[in-house]
Design a protein around this nucleic acid. Structure first.
Lengths: 207, 207
DNA sequence: GCCTTTACCGTACAGCCGTACCATAAAAAC
DNA sequence: GTTTTTATGGTACGGCTGTACGGTAAAGGC
């Protein structure tokens, strides 16, 4: 075996294994041993790359956030009409709903981490405050442009609308994860919401 | 000490202790010993009343659901104008946001259980499907009456509105719990939502 | 050619977990 | 008044967990 390996790649491989275990059996079932088995490496190797469990868990969270950010950016970039606010927001909805397996996994594990952060001060801070805030600002910008372009009514409060979109998508996503709603029903709720946002006849418009 | 005690009361006492531990340190920190200490009883007593840990956890969930149901019913009953849909929905919002300590505790522990149920089939089923569905039906009824009374526009889809309300309130509640938003900001988002629901000038009305 | 570093393995240890078991006072049953 | 039941305490056990430690083959460095 060669002497030098790509640490970042090994760490990503192990972090992915953690996410898989967490998605399948819950974050509480994540142990160093379980992650090692899932990654197909020895227990010691997990220790070698993340020397404590807290470090592993924390690193996996950052890994997850980076991945989701990239997926969202890629989806935005792949839009055929990036100028259309409706298209952007529909992409946002599609991305945030646990539709495909990747989305389901991400939402589930992310929510698990969020719950963990509610009682563990070492985990809170950045990811669950900074991340959503950034997303919310992004949504606010999209909405502001749409309002300026007359796509949505002039009397809408764009930052409130952004908060509503973010919270609502998170809420319906959760309802899908617990089995209360199907993905189709969730999509329907979000479609209704967007329809209400854009189709507002009789409301005042910009220019 | 007397021979016969009120089992239901003892069980409630211990279940409350579990909820307190879960709210303070997270559901993952709930152990038989921790619950026993919190309740001020011996480990064996916890075993005596709920003979397995799964039983304890399950019973505490039912306890939590019953409590929340009672609180919500009491709030509805305490309304000065129970006929006003806006008042009902505002009561619903107030009840579902983690405003006071009880609400915070309930939301946090409830969400923890929800996350647990996402991977544990033994816990899913009833509480997280039946409960929300019942609430959603209740909201739908309130909205349908409001629409019939002309309080909200005739072109609103009441069941979609109910789903939106429920999911949105859950979403903003979560954002408060993770520290992304203050309770005041959450209330502001919900107020905006209700304003949009009720103030819809120019929209068609029922008789 | 030798020595250090890197990447890995296996194992051991102390601690906490759920659970089972034994003991025992007090009340109830008879 | 004896016997059984109920409510409780204490403790022990096997299993799993995170972490520490001692090895070791291969690759560089010199």
């Amino acid at each position: 075996m060669p002497k030098r390996v790509d640490h970042a790649q090994r760490r990503a491989h192990i972090a992915d294994a953690l996410v898989r275990v967490a998605a399948r059996e819950g974050l509480h079932a994540v142990t160093m041993r379980a992650v090692a088995v899932e990654a197909g490496v020895s227990l010691n190797l997990v220790q070698y790359y993340f020397d404590t469990k807290a470090g592993l868990v924390h690193a996996a969270l950052e890994h997850l956030e980076r991945q989701s950010h990239e997926r969202w950016a890629a989806r935005l970039a792949g839009l055929e009409d990036p100028g259309s606010a409706r298209a952007c927001l529909e992409a946002f909805v599609a991305e945030s709903l646990p539709a495909d397996e990747a989305g389901h996994t991400f939402r589930l594990v992310w929510t698990s981490y969020a719950v963990l952060a509610m009682t563990d001060p070492a985990l809170a801070g950045q990811p669950f405050v900074e991340g959503p805030h950034r997303l919310e600002r992004q949504l606010t910008e999209i909405l502001a442009k749409a309002r300026a372009a007359g796509e949505i009514a002039a009397d809408r409060d764009v930052s409130a609308e952004a908060a509503r979109l973010l919270s609502l998508s998170h809420g319906v996503g959760t309802s899908v994860l617990v089995g209360q709603r199907s993905v189709a029903e969730a999509r329907e709720v979000m479609r209704y919401h967007l329809d209400r946002l854009f189709d507002d006849p009789g409301a005042p418009r910009a220019p």
